[in-house]
Design a protein around this nucleic acid. Sequence first.
DNA 1: AAAGAATTCAACCGCAATTCA
DNA 2: CTGAATTGCGGTTGAATTCTT
Length: 305
Amino acid sequence: MGRSPCCEKEGLNRGAWTAQEDRILTDYIRAHCEGGWRNLPKKAGLKRCGKSCRLRWLNYLRPDIKRGNITADEEELIIRLHKLLGNRWSLIAGRLPGRTDNEIKNYWNTIVSKKVKDQPKPTKETKIMKSKIITNSQPATQVVRTKALKCSRVLLLTPPQARPQVMHQQQQHRCLDTDTATQTNAVPMAKNKNADGKVPCLAGGEDHLAMDFDLGEIDLAELLNSDLSDKFRCFDCCNYGSYNNTSSTSSNSSSEQAMMFSEELVQSWNLSGCAHDQANVGSNLQSLSPFLDCNKGEWLSSGII
DNA sequence: AAAGAATTCAACCGCAATTCA
DNA sequence: CTGAATTGCGGTTGAATTCTT
């Protein structure tokens, strides 16, 4: 048997879209809004697969598509985001207004990867230094990601020995509710929590944390200004530390802030009672992104991508 | 000028997550 | 709760274009 096809393949146009097809699709979506891709071709009178229509609209016909070459600034941002997120093209595209995931993926595969490949290979000394840093900074926390999608499902598994032993009752219930319109620290809330506010364990019993929220919903500008933005945790000893973000500027875009955020954090990391030296802690945070510790209800940094 | 190689990028594909009935 | 339908993602393909010889 197998999976049923997304649509009838017979009699459908394939390959490059004609100007007329573009016009039909654009007119239809303007009149009826996006969605219902499966039935759209039939209703619009297009001999195309619904998937093909969706792709054409998202990657080419949308009015907010940014035309023209990728700028040097955008390229820099792509490289930095790729370092941070890997091949999560849709997430990267989300930080580049008007650019599509397909465009960025193509750009990376053709231009950037070539540039990266052409860069001089690291010397023996730098390789040794790098391996030492990696060895010294084996994280106690492991992030397991599913396929990116909307980055809507993120699992954080923390070995028992790496977990703080004491949790204040009130902190356990500090997961913030995004539905609360008046609250200023609007950060995504973990979904599917039990009555006690904890997320159900997914593997390994109670000693594992699980998170499930839409990372795409995070407004980094808000995060930077929230009272949670200065609470991060060292992977090695699990101590919580602080981050002084007074140097953050508000004039930058969210994507720029995201980058500044991580880089400044590495530089300004300050852990109270952390036995690990600045360099090692810094290397632990090289590819950080914000996560919510659902049991403590606090943001913490998590850098394993 | 022509032919072949290399590059670009729109489009396709299969899969997995999510939504819906 | 379950299975089907829908949506969205990243990897890959191949036609069109550009470059090189």
